[in-house]
Amino acid sequence: MDPFLVLLHSVSSSLSSSELTELKFLCLGRVGKRKLERVQSGLDLFSMLLEQNDLEPGHTELLRELLASLRRHDLLRRVDDFEAGA
């Protein structure tokens, strides 16, 4: 399986429902409101961002910004580990 997708799945499974709600709010300018209403998990949101090329294995800035906004430094370390091994 693609290591970047494994990372996104790992991050998604670590998010609380309130954190997902916050991420959806933060992505309002990037993803349409109707699409965001269908998001049920972090993976749903990340999939939309992947489709729009806002997220890519070599383009993790948005993911970092979102996780920093949540103050999830543990998840930021996972992104660091991914990039160190990528």
Rank of each mutant, 00 (worst) to 15 (best):
M1N: 07
M1T: 07
M1E: 12
M1A: 06
M1S: 09
M1W: 06
M1G: 09
M1V: 07
D2Y: 05
D2V: 06
D2N: 11
D2T: 07
D2A: 05
P3D: 14
P3L: 07
P3M: 08
P3A: 11
F4P: 02
F4R: 02
F4T: 02
F4C: 02
L5N: 14
V6L: 14
V6A: 15
V6I: 12
V6P: 04
V6Y: 15
L7F: 08
L7W: 03
L7D: 02
L7Y: 00
L8A: 01
L8I: 06
L8R: 02
L8Y: 01
L8S: 02
L8Q: 02
H9P: 00
H9N: 15
H9R: 15
S10F: 09
S10D: 14
S10W: 07
S10L: 08
V11A: 02
V11E: 00
V11N: 00
S12R: 02
S12L: 05
S12N: 04
S13M: 15
S13L: 09
S14W: 00
S14V: 04
S14C: 10
S14G: 09
S14L: 06
L15I: 10
L15Y: 00
L15K: 01
S16D: 07
S16R: 05
S16G: 05
S16I: 03
S16L: 03
S16F: 02
S16N: 09
S17T: 12
S17K: 14
S17L: 10
S18V: 09
S18A: 12
S18H: 12
S18T: 11
S18Q: 14
E19F: 01
E19M: 00
E19D: 07
E19I: 03
L20G: 02
L20T: 06
T21L: 09
E22D: 12
E22Q: 15
E22G: 05
L23M: 13
L23T: 03
L23K: 00
L23A: 06
K24N: 03
K24R: 06
K24V: 04
F25Y: 11
F25E: 14
F25L: 15
L26S: 07
L26Y: 10
L26A: 10
L26F: 07
C27T: 08
C27V: 11
L28G: 13
L28P: 02
L28M: 14
L28S: 14
L28H: 14
G29C: 09
G29Q: 12
G29F: 05
G29T: 10
G29I: 05
G29K: 14
R30E: 04
R30P: 03
R30S: 06
V31F: 08
G32F: 03
G32R: 07
G32H: 11
G32D: 14
K33Y: 11
K33D: 09
K33C: 10
K33T: 11
K33L: 10
R34F: 13
R34C: 11
K35M: 05
K35V: 04
K35I: 02
K35E: 13
L36K: 01
L36G: 03
L36F: 05
L36N: 01
E37D: 13
E37T: 10
E37P: 04
E37G: 10
E37L: 09
E37W: 06
R38H: 13
R38P: 07
R38D: 14
V39N: 03
V39H: 01
V39Q: 01
V39C: 11
Q40E: 14
Q40F: 09
Q40R: 14
S41V: 07
S41K: 08
S41T: 13
S41I: 06
G42V: 06
G42T: 06
G42Y: 03
L43K: 07
L43P: 04
L43Y: 15
L43V: 13
L43G: 06
D44E: 12
L45A: 02
L45K: 00
L45H: 01
L45W: 01
L45Y: 01
F46V: 04
F46E: 03
F46T: 01
M48S: 06
M48G: 04
L49H: 01
L49V: 04
L49D: 03
L49S: 02
L49E: 02
L50I: 15
L50R: 13
E51I: 06
E51T: 08
E51P: 05
E51D: 11
E51S: 09
Q52V: 09
Q52N: 13
Q52K: 09
N53E: 12
N53H: 14
N53C: 11
D54T: 10
D54Q: 15
D54S: 10
D54P: 05
D54E: 13
L55P: 05
L55K: 06
L55Q: 07
L55S: 06
L55G: 07
L55N: 06
E56F: 13
E56G: 15
P57C: 12
P57I: 08
P57D: 11
P57H: 09
P57R: 10
G58D: 14
G58S: 09
G58C: 08
G58L: 07
G58I: 04
H59Q: 11
H59G: 11
H59V: 05
H59E: 09
T60N: 06
T60L: 13
T60E: 00
T60C: 13
E61F: 10
E61M: 10
L62S: 05
L62G: 05
L63E: 00
L63A: 01
R64S: 05
R64P: 01
R64H: 07
E65C: 10
E65R: 10
L66M: 10
L66S: 04
L66P: 01
L66N: 02
L66K: 03
L67T: 01
L67R: 01
L67Y: 02
A68L: 13
A68E: 15
A68M: 14
A68Q: 14
A68H: 12
A68K: 12
A68I: 15
S69M: 11
S69K: 14
S69N: 15
S69I: 07
S69A: 13
S69T: 12
L70T: 05
L70D: 00
L70K: 01
L70I: 13
L70C: 09
L70M: 06
L70E: 01
R71Y: 08
R71L: 06
R71G: 15
R71W: 06
R71P: 11
R72K: 03
R72I: 03
R72F: 00
H73Q: 12
H73P: 14
H73L: 08
H73I: 07
H73S: 13
D74C: 00
D74G: 00
D74M: 00
D74Y: 03
D74V: 00
L75K: 01
L75E: 02
L75F: 01
L75W: 00
L75S: 01
L75A: 00
L75T: 02
L75C: 01
L76K: 05
L76C: 08
L76E: 05
L76I: 13
R77N: 07
R77S: 10
R77M: 07
R77I: 07
R77P: 05
R78P: 03
R78Q: 12
R78D: 09
R78E: 10
R78G: 05
R78I: 09
V79W: 00
V79S: 00
D80C: 06
D80F: 05
D81Q: 09
D81F: 05
D81M: 08
F82V: 02
F82T: 02
F82H: 05
F82N: 00
F82Q: 04
F82D: 03
F82Y: 14
E83C: 08
E83S: 08
E83H: 07
E83R: 07
A84D: 14
G85W: 07
G85Q: 13
A86T: 12
A86C: 11
